[in-house]
């Protein structure tokens, strides 16, 4: 549907960003997580870079491709976790696109990433409530998810900021 609008150059760029996100996703999956509900979410860097280097459609595509391929590789495709991460990932990237489009001149990539992290976690909880648990008590976990998300969103935003600074001057990314 979107494909005919993409040049070969753009497809290569998006593939690169997807691959980058996948590597981060798989690497992060190997790290031990002492608190299972806290995740750094480094794969979001790829989505953020796609948003800032290409656009919101491309960012959406990169996110979907990364979530589907990543789940396939680590073996949770079609498990509840997959729907949760796909739904939350889509919500977060759409919210971030909207923020960037509306207030992009006032909010830097760091602020956008912070909002994305918060919205990702809130969306995940709401989805878990709808699809899996169906008990209001799951919202007890809200502060446990959003408080770390402030920190991780900031860190991911900073990483994306510095990467964007270095990626922008590359002629390769100018379409």
């Amino acid at each position: 549907m979107l494909m005919p609008f993409f040049s070969a150059r753009k497809i290569a760029q998006l593939a690169l960003l997807t691959g980058f996100g996948l590597i981060l996703f798989i690497f992060e999956n190997m790290l031990p997580r002492p608190l299972p509900w806290i995740k750094l979410g480094t794969a979001q860097i790829a989505s953020l870079l796609a948003l800032y280097l290409a656009g919101w459609r491309e960012a959406l595509l990169v996110t979907v491709a990364r979530v589907v391929l990543g789940s396939l590789i680590i073996g949770v495709l079609a498990a509840p976790t997959f729907y949760l991460s796909l739904g939350a990932g889509l919500t977060a990237i759409l919210a971030m696109s909207l923020l960037q489009a509306l207030w992009g001149d006032r909010i830097s990539i760091i602020g956008v990433s912070l909002c994305g992290a918060m919205i990702h976690n809130i969306a995940q909880l709401i989805l878990a409530y709808w699809l899996v648990v169906q008990s209001r008590q799951i919202f007890y976990l809200l502060p446990l998810l959003t408080l770390p998300a402030v920190f991780t969103g900031l860190v991911i935003g900073l990483c994306s900021y510095f990467l964007l600074e270095r990626a922008k001057p590359l002629a390769w990314f100018k379409s």
Binding site: I107, S108, I110, G111, C115, M118, P143, L147, V150, L154
Partner: peptide, 16 residues
């Protein structure tokens, strides 16, 4: 961080 970024940061912290 821009000014709006800082406002968002503080708002997020308070909200959580």
């Amino acid at each position: 961080l821009t000014r709006t970024d800082k406002i968002i940061l503080i708002a997020c912290l308070f909200a959580s």
